[in-house]
Design a protein around this nucleic acid. Structure first.
Length: 406
RNA sequence: CGGGGCGUAGUAUAGUGGUAGUAUACUUGCUUUGGGAGCAUGUGGUCCGAGUUCGAUUCUCGGCGCCCCGACCA
């Protein structure tokens, strides 16, 4: 993609109304736009990152057998009344709306009720179990206080997976697989070393649950690391008195054992003996945007964002320096060659000074910067700089291609 | 939901009861070209409503919006 074609622009200064690092850098770089408090738009660069994250999650969900669907954001009141979750007293972050005739509808904050209702028509025998279903879908939560940029918003995409099993034994088997898949996801996006599993109470609708907490100053939770090797920690909300240091952390994922709370009397199956049993359920959530915000919080430096290769909007950033005819020609050829070879490249073909291109490249945070200038022509070698380590290297075109294809 | 802070140009900020200033961004021109260049040039602004006043961007009240701390957080 050519940077001269972007409708977005970078900014030198952070917006006055954003304090969080993730929002400041993402807005400065042109990844996101603030629509209102707790509501953000994803612009071309930001959407590329978000989609990378979504695809990493999707791959892992598919690998544990998850079947992808896409449910509606508008939800029926009746489904929520039968589990007693429609009342604002019970769930205080509802967004509700009305049909023209006055009928009330809910805007999804989660999907247990509609999904178990939808599945009633498909599940009737023990032979239909187990299976799991997931989606990337917009959730609305009427937070009294949105905060921390894209880490706690009122409208966001959530990956929610639901598992349907015959009983607790079968459930736990899947639950462990899901736990491993989650750890894989966080490792792939570059947060593995600083992410810990904590056990938590699970709230009023779950028997128990686990949270995935990433060490981060912008986090809202306090955890105690209990086993560094196993990446285990305790959440402070458990009220445990532990003799280890407190760490601030952000919850980037959670998995819940739901049991039969949402299925009892509705979503049932006939066992081998022909007896009706409620389906045993679990739910598993990740917010891709919160994950994106956490990556920025944890991995950025004073010059800007540092994207891990797995989620970077592009693999390489070509900067042409100067407006010399030969330089422009070589930069153009290099860009086309790399794209032909399957490398995702952002090409800074703008007619601006070197300093501005360097500063923007640092801010945007693409893993490898490739400079094309008079020096490149003289030496016939391409200078690269690693955004994360600052390491500068020189490559012939062939070696550059293979380096970027790795 | 409790407490605190704040709304001035696309962005970041200064200032004032009497025609609103700077930087940056943007237009145009010249120079420049390996770390956000220089000179010139032009465009663009006081959140909304009511009140006080001869006159309100400024003072008062209300509304709306934004941020922070806490509570809450399937």
């Amino acid at each position: 993609m050519r940077q001269s074609q972007f409708f977005t622009k970078t900014r030198k200064e952070a917006p006055a109304d954003e304090v969080s690092k993730n929002a400041q850098l993402l807005i400065r770089g042109g990844f996101i736009n603030k629509e209102m408090s707790g509501v953000y738009d994803f612009l071309p660069l930001g959407l590329r990152v978000l989609n990378k994250i979504i695809n990493i999650i999707r791959d892992e969900m598919n690998m544990i057998g998850g079947q992808e669907i896409f449910m509606s954001a508008l939800q029926r009141k009746e489904l929520w009344e039968r589990t007693d979750r429609w009342s604002d007293e019970k769930v205080d972050n509802w967004f509700k709306t009305n049909l023209k005739d006055g009928a009330e509808l809910g805007l999804a904050f989660t999907h247990e009720e509609p999904i178990s209702n939808m599945l009633e028509q498909f599940v009737s025998s023990h032979k239909d179990l187990p299976f799991s279903v997931y989606q990337f879908q917009t959730k609305f939560r009427n937070e009294t206080r949105a905060k921390s940029g894209i880490m706690r918003t009122r409208e966001f995409i959530m990956k929610d997976l639901y598992s349907f099993t015959k009983d607790e034994v079968e459930h736990l088997e899947f639950y462990e697989k899901a736990k491993k898949a989650y750890l894989n996801i966080f490792k792939t996006v570059g947060l593995g070393d600083m992410t810990y599993i904590t056990t938590a109470s699970g709230g009023s609708f779950s028997e128990f649950s686990h949270e995935f907490q990433t060490l981060c100053d912008a986090g809202e939770d306090i955890i105690y690391i209990t086993d560094e090797n196993k990446k285990e920690a305790l959440n402070k909300e458990l009220g445990m008195d532990v003799a280890t240091q407190e760490e601030k952390a952000v919850e980037i994922g959670n998995i819940f054992t739901l049991g039969t709370k949402f299925s009892d009397g509705y979503l049932t199956y006939k066992d081998e003996a022909g007896e009706n049993k409620p389906v045993f359920m679990g739910s598993y959530g990740i917010g891709p945007a919160r994950l994106m915000g956490t990556i920025v919080e944890v991995l950025s430096d004073k010059d800007g964002i540092v994207w891990p290769k797995s989620v970077a909007p592009f693999r390489a950033h070509i900067l042409s320096l100067g407006q010399g005819e030969n330089v422009l020609k070589l930069a153009e050829e290099t860009y086309k060659t790399l794209v032909d070879k399957g490398v995702e490249v952002l090409f800074d073909d703008r007619d601006v000074r070197a300093g501005e291109k360097f500063a923007d490249a640092d801010l945007i945070g693409i893993p490898t910067r490739v400079v094309v200038s008079e020096k490149t022509i003289e030496s016939n070698m391409f200078e690269t700089k690693d955004r994360a380590t600052g390491e500068v290297k020189s490559f012939s075109l062939d070696h550059l291609i293979s380096e970027l294809q790795r």
